[in-house]
Simulated scan of single mutants.
Amino acid sequence: MTDEYTDEEVQRLQDAVDEVREQVSRRIVGQEQVIERLLTCLLCDGNALLESTPGLGKTTMIRTLADATALSFSRIQNTPDLMPSDVTGTEIVRETSRGQDLEFEPGPVFANVVLADEINRATPKTQAALLEAMQEGQVTVGDETHPLPEPFFVLATQNPIEQEGTYPLPEAQRDRFTMKLTLDYPDRAAEAEIVDRYTRQRSGDVAVERAISPEDLAAVQDLVRRVPVADGVRDRAVDLVRSTREADRLDYGASPRASMNLVLAAKARAFLDGRSHPDAEDVEAAARPVLRHRVVVDFRAEREGVTPDDVIADLL
């Protein structure tokens, strides 16, 4: 796949990623597409915005992903009274032999996998604190800058039904998410299996083994970026993103960051499928989750019930 990795090394890393998917599936029934796209975001070293109604297993899915990758996990329950320091950490006064010293106490954002539950319930000031962490891989408290652990993966959730008392994410923060994923209700067979399985035991009772080390995960992220992409596939992604800026039913389109994320997602999807390079189908499969949160339909289209997914489908 690349001169710096032998075929045996590439195969070993692909097998490890496949095992991660298998381990997550031990606890999560169905939702194969969402699991694949979460892995895609992780391999891109990106972040994901997940929209779903309560009770569909978002927390369990992300905690299981952390368990299978041996990454530290933390959960932030966003509320209107949550302060930025509750997320990033704060300086506290400690008594030492030299007297009183200020010492930084890290917040829950200092983990490899951070679940920001109901992010749109946090105030804009608290959302901005998380934005720096996502954008820069660091937090600033006082005069000190503190690097976050690597890898660093934020998964933020939103409830699409209950919007009272929420603060919509600004465009700049939405653009920082590699993908926006939608988690649907399981089909009847999957729901029956969920009931049978988890009325006999708790989800935490299902053993999940570590499938990949943090070091190998970092190697996979590096390898995905090195996957070659044909000019025609790159042009397909660039032309698609550029077309969102001229679409009739959109107030505004996606930025060049969307083009980069779209190509990276296509590379990761090819890697997950065991292929050495992405094709146009990979770009098209990643288009909706990469673009749906980066475009805004105009008032007329919204009144007619047109969604960003509808517009993207037409552009495809």
Results as ranks from 00 to 15, higher is better:
M61Q: 15
M61T: 15
R63A: 14
R63N: 15
R63P: 13
T64R: 08
T64M: 07
L65N: 13
L65K: 12
L65I: 15
A66Q: 11
A66C: 09
D67L: 12
D67T: 13
A68L: 05
T69R: 14
T69F: 03
T69S: 10
T69N: 09
A70G: 11
A70F: 12
A70Q: 11
L71W: 04
L71P: 11
L71N: 15
S72V: 04
S72D: 15
F73Q: 12
F73Y: 15
F73R: 13
S74V: 02
S74D: 04
S74L: 03
R75N: 13
R75I: 07
R75M: 09
I76A: 02
I76N: 06
I76M: 09
Q77C: 09
Q77R: 01
Q77W: 03
Q77N: 11
Q77V: 10
N78R: 00
T79G: 02
P80R: 10
P80Y: 09
P80K: 06
P80W: 09
D81R: 12
D81L: 10
L82M: 13
L82R: 11
L82I: 12
M83F: 08
M83P: 05
M83A: 06
P84M: 06
S85H: 01
S85Q: 06
S85W: 00
S85K: 00
S85E: 02
S85L: 03
D86E: 12
V87E: 03
V87M: 05
V87W: 03
T88F: 00
T88I: 13
T88W: 00
T88Q: 08
G89I: 02
G89M: 02
G89H: 08
G89L: 10
T90L: 10
T90P: 13
E91W: 00
I92K: 05
V93H: 05
V93Q: 04
R94T: 11
E95H: 12
E95D: 14
E95I: 02
E95K: 06
T96Q: 10
S97L: 04
S97P: 01
R98K: 12
R98W: 06
G99Y: 07
G99D: 02
G99P: 12
Q100D: 11
D101M: 04
D101T: 08
D101K: 09
L102D: 01
L102A: 08
L102V: 04
L102W: 15
E103N: 11
E103P: 08
F104K: 05
F104H: 13
E105I: 00
E105H: 10
E105M: 06
E105Q: 15
P106E: 08
P106W: 03
P106G: 02
G107D: 07
G107Q: 05
G107F: 05
G107W: 01
P108F: 01
V109M: 04
V109N: 05
F110Y: 07
A111E: 03
A111M: 02
A111H: 14
N112W: 01
N112Y: 00
N112Q: 14
